[in-house]
Design a protein around this nucleic acid. Structure first.
Lengths: 115, 115
DNA sequence: CAATATACTTTGTGTTACATAGTATATTGT
DNA sequence: ACAATATACTATGTAACACAAAGTATATTG
């Protein structure tokens, strides 16, 4: 039941978190999933969440993709890299999120003037 | 475009914010809408958002409702009051939200060990 | 008495996270 | 050598939620 709320909380911000993870270097899908699952107990994702999200980011030209044909050994991987437009959106939407979460936090903290 | 993200950010937390607003006293629908629109530039809602949300909260027994038949003058109003179960959920989910937003904030702030 | 404001209702839409299942290649244990 | 497991990506379908838009009905105001 708590999980149902968490599922909703992630909406929208997951995209931005993924862009953030790609900010420093390109990564492939499975790498991102592992990173999220290690880094955070709230942002865990499954393939069915991440890959469609990546396709959306690609459609919006926020990331570029390239296939890396098994360089020496291993399965071929699809690498995702953030674009300049992606960096711009990352910056803007991050700022919006900080403002948003601060405001929600203020309300939930209880400075509710009961007029 | 920015608004599209904001719309997603609200998911889940709007319910909790409404519970919070009802924490101190019962209120009717339009009152809640006005309160949200004044109090916050991020949490603005329309009727089509709030009323279905209130019905959900009622279904889940997190709020009670009562009709106030126009006491002296004015349109009859439907008052919403938080239940004990509602207070419990408010407390629990608030805590989850603070933890969640702190974690997202930490990631977006850029302490990304690029391993 | 028409126009506007208040208050609530109803229907339908788009986005998103996720479950589930599937394909295919690599690696590992015995 | 070969089944089992891990890696990596794809594809289909579902549920929840915020919202647009339109509607109903009563009060107030010019």
């Amino acid at each position: 039941m708590q999980d149902a709320y968490l599922k909703q909380f992630k909406k929208g911000i997951l995209e931005i978190v993924v862009l953030k993870l790609l900010e420093s270097r390109e990564q492939y899908g499975y790498e991102l999933i592992s990173a999220l699952n290690e880094k955070s107990r709230f942002l865990e994702v499954r393939e069915g969440t991440l890959y469609p999200l990546l396709y959306r980011l690609e459609d919006e030209k926020l990331i570029d993709t390239r296939w890396q044909q098994a360089p020496a050994r291993g399965v071929p991987k699809k690498y995702y890299a953030i674009t300049p437009k992606g960096r711009q959106v990352l910056g803007e939407v991050s700022k919006t999120w900080f403002a948003f979460s601060a405001e929600v936090g203020a309300i939930l903290k209880g400075d509710d003037d009961q007029s």
